[in-house]
Design a protein around this nucleic acid. Structure first.
Length: 514
DNA sequence: TTAGGGTTAG
């Protein structure tokens, strides 16, 4: 594989640059095509996803024909729960097709579906607010002899909260016994967590007061509520809760302290965070390892100090943890690399990245995303693309995700390089890594208005159609903008097609109900 | 997949 850098070097020194360019392209292509053919042979989920994406219809009645295509293309023994889950994950951003795939599997009696696959499908239907599919999936699950699980409850509660219906989540909890799920502390904690993560901390607190005598309360209950207050930047309430926790006879855990530590940084109380961290070290030395900072505490401090602009102090803490025998994790490196990119320099961030590789750490998708974002912010788009290319070739197991694509697409759009952004969207639509999500569509469609060209309006119109087919609702403002753009540039027929799709929007605005 | 650390930009 030849890097762009080497190619640029050769180009400057030699006169026969055209031959060298072809040689460069050929080598890259050869390398790439060998990768693709390996992929096809070994990566079953990718192969199945492509087949599902190519299927001509997404109507519920298309499940039978997809089932026969799948059964004639793959032996049923290859459709293991992990393969099924991997396909559902790849098709995550095309909800209707994910559900079509799942419905087709239900028609294949030789494929046994696991509770986690059902949960994935239920989660997708709930996200789409597709009440009919949701009912169908829940009854199909029961018919398959798989009772609803704790996980089913927590994902439904999460979707209710996200849809602005926290009371429905509470009602579901109160009626759990009708669905064969036990009401116990574990489920109660999940309900509180869903409410706190959706910023309904007061509601969670009032429920906690009502039910604490019925379900009890453990360290996890208090940690969930403390984290909820910290997310709202109400560290005072979190400290009060810590006091209440001790008074109730529940011992705080290291997670409790880490939640508060993060809370101080989040609310901009950097000095309080630092004093709290020193206190943790002091008490830890005196009373044992129960509150001695661990890798999570150190990562929180490195990240918090760095974001506050205290890069040298962050570096000292990073070095100190190693001398204290607490090894940094990939997350610690990611936090440090991110703050260097944001508050210091990309060069120093790249040096830490190289040090990470030298020490034998395996970077993950976040490491690459943080670095690629840093390069994009610094205007070094070519280096960002080079890193993405090298990464994908070097590490086949760690693939770019939707964030990776959105970072690069956003920056190409900002630079006015629309074609490059569209090329990446095209690569996403191949279904190898991940499909575009709502952010991708919003980004690219907004960009299509910059050049005021008729062709761009058609591209924007096609994207609106595609996003609706994949279960994403465009904002009314954007929809009208695309419609006006098409009308003003003489694309009346297309505008009419788009208008006809509006009734589909209404069908998508359904509510979740059990 | 019962709680704590690392991803957009606005």
């Amino acid at each position: 594989m030849i890097s762009t850098k080497l190619y640029n070097g050769l180009l400057c020194r030699h006169r026969c640059c055209r031959q060298i360019y072809y040689w460069y392209l050929l080598e890259n292509l050869r390398h790439h095509s060998s990768l693709i053919s390996n992929d096809e042979a070994t990566d079953l989920p990718s192969h199945i996803s492509k087949l599902v994406l190519k299927h001509p219809s997404t109507a519920a009645s298309a499940a039978a024909s997809l089932a026969s295509t799948i059964s004639s293309s793959f032996p049923s023994t290859s459709l293991t729960p992990s393969v099924v889950n991997a396909v559902l994950k790849r098709l995550w951003n095309d909800g209707p097709r994910s559900l079509l795939f799942f419905r087709s599997l239900l028609r294949l009696p030789s494929v046994s579906l696991s509770p986690s696959s059902f949960d994935h499908a239920v989660d997708i239907a709930a996200r789409l607010r597709d009440r009919l599919s949701l009912r169908f999936l829940l009854s199909a699950r029961l018919a398959a002899g798989l009772p609803l699980s704790h996980r089913t409850f927590s994902l439904l509660a999460e979707r209710f909260a996200a849809a602005g219906k926290p009371d429905r989540a509470v009602r579901l909890f109160l009626s759990l016994h009708h669905h064969g799920i036990r009401q116990e502390l574990r489920t109660f904690n999940s309900l509180l967590d869903v409410l706190c993560k959706s910023r309904r901390v007061r509601k969670a607190t009032s429920l906690f007061k009502t039910f604490k005598h019925r379900f009890g309360a453990d360290a996890i209950t208090f940690n969930i509520l403390a984290d909820g207050w910290c997310r709202l930047k109400h560290t005072g309430n979190a400290l009060d809760l810590l006091k209440e926790m001790v008074e109730s006879g529940v011992n705080p855990t290291l997670a409790t302290y880490n939640i508060l530590l993060k809370g101080f940084f989040r609310s901009g109380q950097v000095n309080e965070a630092w004093q709290f961290f020193l206190q943790m070290k002091k008490r830890g030395r005196k009373m044992g390892s129960d509150c001695l900072p661990d890798v999570v505490s150190y990562t929180t401090v490195v990240h918090g100090l760095g974001l506050a602009g205290q890069i040298e102090n962050a570096r000292k803490v990073f070095d100190e943890m190693i001398s204290q025998g607490c090894l940094p994790s990939v997350a610690t490196y990611n936090a440090f690399i991110q703050v260097l990119c944001k508050k210091d320099s990309i060069q120093n961030a790249l040096m830490v990245f190289e040090e990470m590789l030298r020490r034998g750490y395996t970077p993950n998708v976040t490491t690459y995303n943080v670095l690629i974002r840093g390069l994009c912010h610094g205007g070094e788009m070519e280096r960002a693309m080079e890193l993405m290319q090298k990464w994908m070739v070097r590490d086949e197991r760690c693939r770019p995700n939707v964030h990776t694509y959105n970072i690069v697409i956003r920056h190409w759009c900002e630079k006015g390089e629309t074609e490059k952004a569209l090329e990446l969207v095209g690569r996403m639509n191949e279904g190898v890594d991940c499909l575009p999500n709502l952010d991708t569509y919003n980004l690219v469609i907004s960009r299509m208005f910059e050049r005021r060209r008729s062709e761009d309006m058609v591209v924007a119109g096609r994207m609106v159609m595609e996003m609706v087919q994949r279960g994403y609702l465009p904002r009314r403002f954007m929809f009208n903008k695309v419609l006006n753009g098409l009308l003003l540039t003489g694309n009346q027929a297309f505008a009419r097609d788009l208008l006809r799709m509006q009734d589909k929007f209404w069908r998508l605005r359904r509510d979740i109900r059990l």
